[in-house]
Design a protein around this nucleic acid. Structure first.
Lengths: 335, 335
DNA sequence: AGTAGTGAGTAAATCGTTTCGGAACGGCCC
DNA sequence: GGGCCGTTCCGAAACGATTTACTCACTACT
């Protein structure tokens, strides 16, 4: 209720002075500073953010648009963003586009009105999107894409090398002696799925065999159908290992196997992707490809803040992280 | 870059008129309205949110403080909040207190500065909290608590009846013929845990037996230790069913059982709480107590908006929802 | 003819900060 | 005593929108 004016009156100074004790306390004499501070305390005054950012032209918050908050992946990324922001005393607002282009468009619109310090986004990738994003950029709001195709983007971006992830998976399974490997995942229109598959396929030898089990979606449910399909193959045709595009799929396959009394990894080795918490906690702990999720968010935020702090002389960068493999019981026979 | 002033100049009208076509287009003559609109389009003008809300005194966004975004529970609640907000053209900003009282305090502080339309929060429940919340309320920012102890709160609140949830669990297991039931969960300082236990205990008969397995935390890992403990009991002492305070715990117990070769539900029936997606997808589909999560968020948002729209004449309400039981294979023998 | 009423638009006040050019004052040096 | 700094503080001008009181031109009614 009380504004800077009333604080000024109570302390017997001008509003400019109050503003100074708020923003550059060292510039005001200790005596008056104390007087102002006690007036502030007495009135319970707190700054009006709108007025402040109207004057400043931009706010002290960054907006994050997550593709799907239900995916634990984004939660971890967020954690990284938050630690980076906290250091600069910047607040993070999270929004959920939920893979819906319409929602995303709405969010970007309110961003144009609110003028945040910057925007972190995993785009839904519909048609009108590039244009909306560049409108934001034209308004001086830096945008950093994350977990997105970092290749053909003009601004800053961070991503993880999914082809490498696929290669790691393939090499690991070959080392374990598998020569017939299945890939379960889809749809192949999703870059991540395609690249993970390509990485795997790239490291298989001429004599190795690859069976692709296409899925409409990456969920536990579709994982179970993949499991059915694998279990239903005649013994000679059945792969000895499966690389799943996703831990959820891997969990589904695992459940189907245990329910059918097949042994993991003896009858079928299973390798997932993402290393979500449930992977380590599964009935048979799942091997998985881990992405540096928190670091992904962290550097995305740092890139954003750097660009926000000096818009000139900033050159866009695309940072690609490397995944690594976490070997657990689902691919490693117990000794 | 362009402000309402430039639009006015280009269209040859005053700023007031521009504001009118933005906010009450029906009040301005069709001819000038079109002129203004084309000027807006030509300049690519978008409103400045800060200026707008400085004038208005409050913003068109509500803030949600989730206790732990990593818990799927909150994601679903959020979905309900968002559908309610969307109808009123209000944007939802999500923040994560992460069970950290310090973070929460910081968030509430920025709320005081930003003056959102309202705040939805699951409080961490530390000491200084009540005071900070009532400071927000004193500033005219309505606060609705959700999934919290709705009892001793002054403002609006929504919650789910956990005692009833416990009773449902107990009745279901008794109907299935179980006379020796375990309760796995903790710590008992958490209201939800305590009430779920009390509900269960309340419906057991004099001849029934209840074994409490206290846990430091509700995770898959502690669930596995609970499973060990149960499996380690001598046959005569072993309960035939376990009610877990949480689906995560239930999943842990289930994993431990399948790994030990014990059959669910033949050797041990398992009943969880929350009905998270993983429950239905477990190797043995888990029975669980379901809370109306989305509805919880939805009505919380509605209460908030109602209070925000007419601060006078609003009387606080505490809405308690009722959970229900979803019976699946983990408590129902296959026929 | 005079008054009231209506519709459309304008000018100016206002929201609460931050910032910038100066003013007031004291001390110091010559 | 006059010129010159330095330190503190003040006053006023922004920032960009909304809103209120008011003007102006016309019509309609008595």
């Amino acid at each position: 209720m009380s504004s800077i004016k009333e604080v000024a009156r109570l302390a017997g100074v001008s509003v400019g002075t109050v503003s100074n004790v708020l923003n550059r306390p060292e510039m005001v004499a200790p005596d008056t500073r104390r007087r102002v501070q006690s007036a502030i305390a007495q009135l319970g005054y707190v700054r009006n953010g709108s007025a402040r950012q109207l004057r400043a032209g931009r706010s002290r918050t960054i907006g994050v648009v997550a593709l799907d908050l239900a995916n634990p992946f984004f939660i971890d990324v967020l954690r990284g963003v938050e630690t980076a922001a906290q250091r600069s005393d910047i607040t993070v607002m999270v929004f959920n586009s939920n893979k819906d282009a319409g929602r995303e468009a709405g969010l970007l619109e309110t961003f144009e009105e609110q003028r945040p310090l910057g925007v972190l986004i995993t785009p839904v990738n519909d048609s009108g999107e590039e244009e909306r994003l560049s409108r934001l950029i034209a308004r001086g709001i830096p945008v950093v894409r994350f977990d997105s195709s970092a290749r053909h983007s003009h601004g800053c971006a961070v991503a993880v090398d999914d082809v490498l992830g696929g290669r790691l998976a393939g090499r690991h399974l070959r080392e374990r002696g598998h020569r017939h490997i299945a890939f379960a995942g889809g749809p192949f229109s999703v870059r991540q799925v395609r690249e993970r598959h390509d990485g795997l396929a790239g490291v298989l030898g001429a004599d190795d065999r690859l069976t692709v089990i296409p899925l409409p979606d990456l969920t536990v449910a579709t994982g179970r159908t993949a499991g059915e399909e694998i279990a239903g193959l005649p013994p000679g045709e059945r792969p000895t290992a499966v690389f799943c595009a996703n831990d959820l799929v891997a969990i589904g396959v695992l459940q189907e196997m245990t329910q059918r009394g097949l042994r993991v990894p003896a009858d079928l080795a299973i390798l997932g992707y993402d290393d979500i918490d449930f992977a380590a906690a599964a009935a048979v702990p799942l091997s998985s490809i881990r992405q540096p999720r928190e670091q992904l968010g962290h550097t995305a935020a740092l890139l954003l803040l750097e660009e926000a702090n000096r818009p000139d002389g900033h050159e866009h960068r695309q940072v690609i992280f490397q995944p690594d493999l976490v070997a657990r019981a689902s691919t490693t026979p117990p000794r």
